[in-house]
Design a binder for these strands. Structure first.
Lengths: 97, 97
DNA sequence: CAAGTTGTTCAATAGTCATAGAACCATTAT
DNA sequence: ATAATGGTTCTATGACTATTGAACAACTTG
């Protein structure tokens, strides 16, 4: 691996770690991990006690870090964990959460 | 696990992820991981191209997150990774770095 | 079409973070 | 004792982060 590739993956790591370095976002991840049904933004925000705009802000952060996937259905957006990213950069983390 | 205990470990997780969410600190960790000999603060700072005070700041962040251990010998401080923390909160991460 | 639902974006704000240089402290060597 | 070495702390600064409420956009339903 070249120095440039190393720096590029570190940028991605930094984005991921920044995204995880917040209690609300950890709670969002835990909520997604623990739910057997698919959840939309509003339901998650409610369970994590975040305001509408604040929840949206956190979703963007998580999405840009590649930690969640969003599926739009009409006006509703359903969110799920992006397991590939977790497995690639943080193998074993979700189990420890 | 109670809600309080959950919040307490999340505080620790947030501290850890904040500590990891910086390119210089990732480089410090990679340097420590890759070195066969014990390194002191100055050597690490030099390899990571950080100023003396800046390196010291990063060491404090990493120490407060429980990610490194410091051994003082005379005026020199030798640093090593605190593997227990990595294994507890980020099993598999060091191998992926 | 009007009204309601679901979510995003904008602007403002307060708080935190990374960095550098100077001063400082502790230890060792001259 | 003085100077040199290895690190830490302080101060200042610019950049980024989290939060809120209001305005907005997209879609659905009465």
């Amino acid at each position: 691996m070249t120095i440039e590739q190393l720096a590029a993956s570190d940028e991605q790591r930094v984005r991921i770690f920044k995204a995880l370095a917040d209690p609300t976002r950890l709670q969002i991840i835990r909520t997604l991990k623990g739910s057997r049904t698919e959840l939309n933004c509003g339901e998650i925000g409610e369970r994590c006690e975040a305001s509408k705009s604040n929840a949206s802000y956190h979703f963007r952060t998580l999405r840009e870090a590649g930690l969640i996937l969003v599926r739009k259905e009409a006006q509703t957006k359903y969110i799920q964990l992006h397991y590939v990213t977790f497995d690639t950069y943080l193998p074993g983390f979700l189990d420890s959460l």
